[in-house]
Design a protein around this nucleic acid. Sequence first.
DNA 1: ACATTAAATTCGA
DNA 2: TCGAATTTAATGT
Length: 232
Amino acid sequence: MIDKDRLHRIAVWSRELRADEQERARSGITERRYPRGSSVCEMGKVFDPWIGVVDGLISVRSLSAEGKEIAFAGVHAGGWFGEGSVLKDEPRRYEAIALRDSHLALLDRRTFMWLFEHSAAFNRFLVEQLNERLGHFMALLENDRKLDSTARVARALALMMNPVLYPDADRRLLITQEEVGTFAGVSRPTANQALRELEKRGILRREYGGLTILKPDLLQAFETVDALKGVA
DNA sequence: ACATTAAATTCGA
DNA sequence: TCGAATTTAATGT
């Protein structure tokens, strides 16, 4: 069983839990390594646990109606995903694959449901997480027709730097421009241009195989600022 | 799509 | 084990 320190390190949501709740959480988590390219869960399959990324990068994606792969998000260290399928006890509606060697924490369904039934702190975290995601997807819908690729890239990165989802996210993201493209729904060359634009504005720094986010707040604000400028 | 550059790996001493 | 040579991966245009 993982110790308390480790629990706090791999699961921000555990920090506010009562002692007995933390005990449960500790006993319900197992850690597992996934090599680059391996599948974490497949669409349509029942895969019980709630999934936390300890280290690495996971792509959460789905097949569109036309059979195209659509990446919803890149989940990196500190992020947890899959609560929808756990809560509804239904097959996964998406697949998740490791984009690089990754280290995951799996919270089994029984423990998840126990925390869900007993812990106010756990529920608060879940609601906050769902709310942040809802905000993200609503913004996507709003901006869909504008097709401003820089804003799309900014939003994809903002999700990965979201202070609620990743309270102590590393400012350094190990992510290639091609991966940024898949998360933002733009081509790699377009992602390249968007990243240059964001760098020019001092929001981030480009590095080989990664990025450092210099101004997470501006990243969050980018879409609105840019939208206002477009109207004016 | 092609050219360039950075990093990772292999290989010979 | 060091570093040059080769291959692979990421980036720039």
